[in-house]
Write a protein that binds this DNA or RNA. Structure first.
Lengths: 242, 242
DNA sequence: GAGTGGTCTAGACCACGGT
DNA sequence: CCGTGGTCTAGACCACTCA
């Protein structure tokens, strides 16, 4: 997989690639600093400035984090750029809140086309399906359908539903050894169906924001696909153009 | 306006601010290179590395563009990160296309609350209103309501409607001397109203993507506020999370 | 105080664009 | 050919964290 480093590439690019590979191989735990800039410079026979430039790239990509005086660390994604962030949960008092979650369904089922394709499964193959409703202060916010490949995620089928907390990704890590390292999200809007409308307490046919997420592991292989729906009236997404 | 440079700030930050101010004062035309790194280094009595770091920041912000061998140039925003980009115009054959535009209305009117607030106008004050329908290959895509402060934009009221092309920003520049340098966009979705539904050829109450844009001049003062609506079925927005 | 990243310098040579 | 930005070096000193 790791292609031979192209000698025509600048040194700092090759160094970036070398470091990126060690990150994806999980050579360095996120809690302990990677080797210092001086050590990396000596190890790779380059000057410290070149190391800094390679690390600059990885920091810009969000793969590393620097802390002055402490060191440089492998970064875990915080999902603070997720589109979900733009559902404004009424009492928008500033700080982030995690909605509670109740499992509506959990089992094996034939994956729908979109899920199978995103996960790279043969069409018609069965996969783990989790359906849940997320609420904030009891008020329904999102309905989610989550699809996972059977292989590494089987333990989830045996876990007591009460042990599913508000967040699934820590569960993937502790129960299945899978770390979510990145994700792709797609936003669309559509008229809400009768069933989801009932769950969300909104009129049938009212506009809903639909967010699809494909979560990937450290090697960028697909881990989880989910589709979430929530009332469009509570959603505002903002960007700046320069 | 330009605060006294804080001596505690790193040199490259102060230099960035100095360059940013010259950009916003339009000292440098976008078509001619700004002074070379060596010249800026000499002028500000710093090393070339410090100049490079200051320019790095402005390039990352999208204010400058570098071309090896040619020089560094002031960048005009291309709006290629605009949310509008994610309306998929049927034959998505890759390259960008600019929808045609027909003016539905043009005149002075009392600005609605959202427009007045965004533009910093006293509520109830009258402003220039342009309403238009945008099509691609004859197929309606977007309805737009555009609001402009009377002051610099009066020439637009006297311009023959036939001279409004597909793009307004070049007109703002040639007719009113106003350059759009940045913008904020907000995305929501709502059920389409009867009138817009008719214009867009979609069923009343169907979900529509609503994009509001506040365009700003070089000094970041608000120039134009617009609200655009289009069928949600043709919209897909994608981001990556790391 | 030892070790980390953050800032800054003053050079060298390379790659590219235009003359 | 010259001038531009791109890469790379080998140092210096500062600011911060932690023992």
């Amino acid at each position: 997989m790791p292609a031979a480093p192209d000698q025509r590439l600048p040194m700092y690019q090759r160094l970036r690639d070398a470091l990126a590979e060690r990150i994806s191989l999980r050579d360095w735990a996120p809690s302990v600093a990677i080797p210092s800039e001086a050590e990396l410079a000596a190890e790779h026979r380059v000057s410290i400035g070149t190391v800094r430039k390679a690390i600059d790239l990885l920091v810009a990509e969000g793969q590393l984090e620097r802390f002055q005086g402490k060191g440089t660390f492998v970064r875990r994604p915080t999902f603070d750029t997720s589109l979900f962030r733009f559902f404004r949960f009424q009492q928008a008092s500033g700080q982030r809140r995690i909605p509670e979650s109740s499992i509506l369904k959990r089992g094996l089922a034939k994956a729908p086309h979109a899920a199978a394709e995103a996960l790279g499964l043969a069409s018609g193959v069965s996969a783990i399906h989790i359906s849940r409703l997320r609420r904030l202060d009891g008020k329904p916010l999102l309905v989610e359908d989550i699809w996972l490949p059977e292989k590494p995620f089987l333990p989830l089928l045996e876990l007591e539903p009460s042990r599913f907390g508000a967040l699934l990704y820590p569960l993937y890590e502790t129960q299945c050894g899978q770390v979510v390292a990145s994700a792709d999200e797609t936003l669309t809007a559509e008229a809400i169906g009768a069933k989801d409308a009932r769950l969300l307490g909104m009129p049938e046919g009212a506009p809903a924001i639909v967010i699809e997420r494909l979560a990937r592991g450290t090697d960028r292989h697909p881990l989880e696909w989910r589709r979430s729906r929530g009332p469009a009236s509570q959603f505002r997404y903002h960007i700046e153009i320069r």
